[in-house]
Amino acid sequence: MDNVEELMASYNNGHKDFSGLCLAGLQLPKADLIGANFSKADLERTDLMFSYLSRVNLQQANLSHANLSGVNLNQANLIYSNLSDANLHGASLQGADLRGADLTLADLFDVNLADADLRNADLSGANLTGACLRGANLRQELRSEQTILRGAHLRQVDMRGANLKGADLACVDLSGANLSEAFLKDADLRNANLSGANLKGASLADAQLEGANLRYANLTRTRAQRSNLAGCDFTGANLKGVNFTDTRLCGAQLFQIVMVDARLLRADLSRANLSGADLTQADLTNAYLGRTNLGEANLTGAILFKAELSSANLADAKFAGTTMPDGKVID
């Protein structure tokens, strides 16, 4: 089928099965093809701008380099489809099934992927700037399969409540993103840019965040047990009530940070810069503070029971009601 009229006529006559057909390069802007079946069809470089494709079956279809900007693909089936280099600028893909889809280098700028299923999808190098992934599922199911977002652009992305368990987010730009209540357990966020990101109430347990930029990020009540935060920059971040139990924070930049009520049990804070930090009511039981800079830190009401403090810098640190390593409370 190489003719637009033919295709539309047959669709309008109630024929909706176009599976396996070659429709590459067709011009179908603003086409109404709701509910059609294009599984395994070849739609490479097809122009479908502003088309209505909700509930369309595009399983294993080839959509690489296709123009899908502004399309409505809500609830569409895009399992294992090839969307590499496709243009999906401003498209709506709410609740779409994109499991295993190839979205490498795809343009997903300002796209709506709320509640979409992106498990095992490859989004490496994709541009997701401004996209909405609220409640989307990017969870890793098997060791060998994971959603890849390596090198993706995720600035201002809305990932509230998204499931990103085990996702590969190394080196991504998530600056200004909203990840509140997101599930990032086991995620790989090494060297990611999370500056200004909102991680309020998010779960980062066991996540890898080595070298990540967390400047001015909001980590209020974030759970990050056992995660690796070595060398992270937390300048200006809000860490009130954060759970950093068993974390690695060695060499982290925590200068003048507010960590009121933080849980830092057994955390490794060696060589971290906590000078001027507010650790009021923080729990540092069993923490390792080898050569940690706690100069001028406020430790009012903090618990340092069994913490290793011998080589830490405590010059001008404020102790009041602090439980010391030996269990004694300083008044």
Partner: peptide
Amino acid sequence: ADLFELRLDIIKYCNPLRAK
């Protein structure tokens, strides 16, 4: 300061590209 909710409210019922 936080426009995530506004963004979602807009794109929930209409096409993000048309809105832009």
